[in-house]
Computed example of a mutant assay.
Amino acid sequence: MSPRRSYDQYCSAARALDVVGDRWTLLIVRELLAGPRRYTDLHADLPGVSTDVLASRLKDMERDGLVSRRRLPPPGAASVYELTGRGRELLPVLQALSGWGRAELGERRPTDALRAHWFALPLLHSLDGSGLVEVRLEEGDFHLYVGAEDGPVYGDGPAPGEPDARLVVDADACVAVAQGELSLLDAVRDGRVTVTGEGALAKALRED
């Protein structure tokens, strides 16, 4: 394993970038906020990363205490990577970066990959309270653990169990919310987001 490069500056921002400033590192954190992931699943949801670079980044992140690796018991019998407590502390960093990057989204380019769950962070930022929310897009379904303090903050596919709210969103509305051009509440009022469910989150979205 190659030694970690350093800015050699006695500054907390520089020290943080020593750990997370390499290309792909924060996007790996984004994927692991969904909970434990196998290497093959990470590679599939990080289009553009080579297998060598992904393996190298994961080793660096293990060394730096951001992720840990464990073996699932049979019948899974596969190794998975998951965030440590230290790695999970990067959630507000990614949320702030996602908010700052709204102005950079612009129009989707023909070469831009897209995964439905990449909208998880912008939508989490738009929801108050706590509970399980299922989001349905044409590109796929995912679910959010709003207000979660431990464990995953989102996941692929339908919600495991009955969600507090279900949102049916078209991609254009989701992009508008992600870009900060439209609030989630306004999208509901305008009929661009359909909300069902009897949980507090669903009632708040319908009544506000």
Rank of each mutant, 00 (worst) to 15 (best):
D45P: 03
V177H: 02
Q95R: 13
R86S: 15
A44Q: 12
V146S: 01
A13P: 15
Y10E: 13
P158N: 04
E139R: 11
L33S: 01
L83Y: 10
R189A: 08
A202W: 08
V19I: 13
L114E: 12
L167P: 01
L17Y: 08
G129C: 07
M61D: 00
M61T: 02
D150W: 09
A187Q: 05
S98G: 06
S12E: 07
E89L: 14
F119C: 00
A16T: 13
E149M: 08
E207A: 02
R57E: 02
L46V: 09
V177L: 04
G140N: 04
L42S: 04
R15G: 15
R4K: 08
V135G: 01
S2T: 15
G197H: 02
L185K: 15
F119H: 01
P36H: 08
L72V: 12
G191S: 09
V80L: 07
G85D: 10
G161E: 03
P158A: 03
V146I: 06
L94W: 06
R189L: 10
P47S: 00
S12A: 06
D172Q: 05
W100K: 15
R37M: 06
A77C: 07
V19F: 11
I28K: 06
A202H: 02
L184S: 12
P152R: 09
E181V: 08
E82Q: 13
P158L: 05
V49L: 04
A204T: 11
D18T: 04
D172M: 07
S2G: 12
W118A: 05
L205G: 00
P163H: 06
L205E: 00
A116W: 00
P75G: 00
E89R: 14
V80F: 07
G101H: 12
L127W: 05
A103C: 09
R206N: 02
D41C: 13
V177S: 00
L105K: 12
R23C: 08
G197Q: 05
A202S: 03
A78Q: 14
P152M: 04
R63A: 07
G85T: 14
L33H: 01
L26T: 03
L167H: 04
V80A: 02
L121F: 12
E89Y: 12
